[in-house]
């Protein structure tokens, strides 16, 4: 029973991280119908920024771990959003009216650029990431089911989701985002600056990915330049599973994917952990391409 619960918790933790990344995919896809292939790299850059900034502060100053955590998280969010927005300006904006495959190829290129940029500027080795989250006194390691980082990840994800939902449902910007995703031309006609909306979407999506990156780095304790690829693909699977373009869908899909991976690795074989995500992707696209919570799109000729 304990093993089962541990698997559930591991699955939830994984799913939460996927959800934080998947949000960026789903929001960008909802608005410009582009699979932002480089989104996983943004998550990786978030983790790296936190590591670098946190590490530099730890060595040069004597701040408390919590302050350092706060500063490095803020830095990760700021820089990841910056990368996301800049990436959109360079690689996607000129292709807004181009065929979708051209934009996708550009996105693949951007992903290669960001990966190798970090590889060349930093290192190809795995870097140790010292967890900056202090242990909660009420959770004794080894005895309690849930670890501190797991609890922090779960709570943070819930908070981020609530804030995001409020943002999209109740603010002017959120309304503009929804309008843009429904019909870009009409949105422009009613006075929405869609460039601003797209920039904002990239910024928010990148920020949540950065939060995911910082959390996962604290959880697993090591990062390298390639972590973004697999995480990105899996988050994409989660977004498709839930129905791409739908925010609750992305969360649901991520949790389902995280659980599947956790149980698959726990009860079947951990060597095939990554295969489960791909198999889910193939099955969902074959049998229900619109995803669990997605709407069916009618194609017009």
């Amino acid at each position: 029973m304990k093993y089962f619960l541990q698997l559930v918790l591991a699955g939830l933790t994984k799913g939460s991280i996927y959800a934080l990344i998947a949000l960026g995919y789903t929001m960008v896809y909802g608005i410009i119908k582009l699979i932002n292939f480089a989104h996983g790299e943004i998550y990786m850059i978030g983790a790296f920024t936190a590591l670098i900034v946190g590490g530099a502060l730890q060595i040069t100053t004597g701040l408390s771990p919590l302050t350092i955590l706060a500063i490095s998280l803020a830095a990760a969010i700021f820089f990841s959003s910056g990368y996301g927005v800049t990436m959109e300006k360079i690689a996607y904006k000129p292709l807004r009216n181009a065929p979708r495959l051209t934009a996708l190829i550009s996105a693949i290129g951007m992903s290669l650029i960001l990966q190798n940029y970090v590889l060349l500027a930093q290192t190809s080795d795995f870097l140790p990431f010292r967890s900056m989250i202090p242990n909660f006194p009420f959770l004794t390691p080894g005895k309690s089911l849930v670890t501190t980082t797991q609890l922090v990840i779960l709570i943070t994800t819930v908070v981020v989701m609530v804030i995001l939902t409020l943002l999209i449902k109740f603010t002017r910007t959120g309304k503009a985002m929804r309008a843009t995703s429904q019909d870009k031309v009409m949105a422009q006609l009613v006075g929405i600056d869609i460039n601003k909306v797209i920039t904002f979407t990239f910024a928010v999506g990148s920020a949540t990915a950065a939060i995911g990156g910082v959390l996962i780095a604290n959880h697993t304790g090591q990062i390298n330049f390639y972590i973004g690829f697999l995480a990105g693909i899996k988050a994409f699977v989660a977004a498709v599973l839930g129905g791409i373009g739908s925010i609750p869908g992305a969360v649901l899909g991520s949790l389902v994917l995280g659980m599947t991976e956790s149980f698959g690795a726990g009860y079947i074989s951990s060597a095939y952990e990554d295969v489960f995500a791909f198999i889910i992707l193939i099955l969902i696209l074959i049998f229900k391409p619109s995803g669990l919570l997605g709407r069916n799109e009618i194609e017009k000729v």
Partner: peptide, 17 residues
């Protein structure tokens, strides 16, 4: 050679645009 993949990435973006 070290910059190979970086150049390929740049090539993909520049060519698409």
């Amino acid at each position: 050679a070290d910059y190979r993949m970086l150049m390929f990435g740049v090539a993909l973006v520049v060519m698409s645009i």
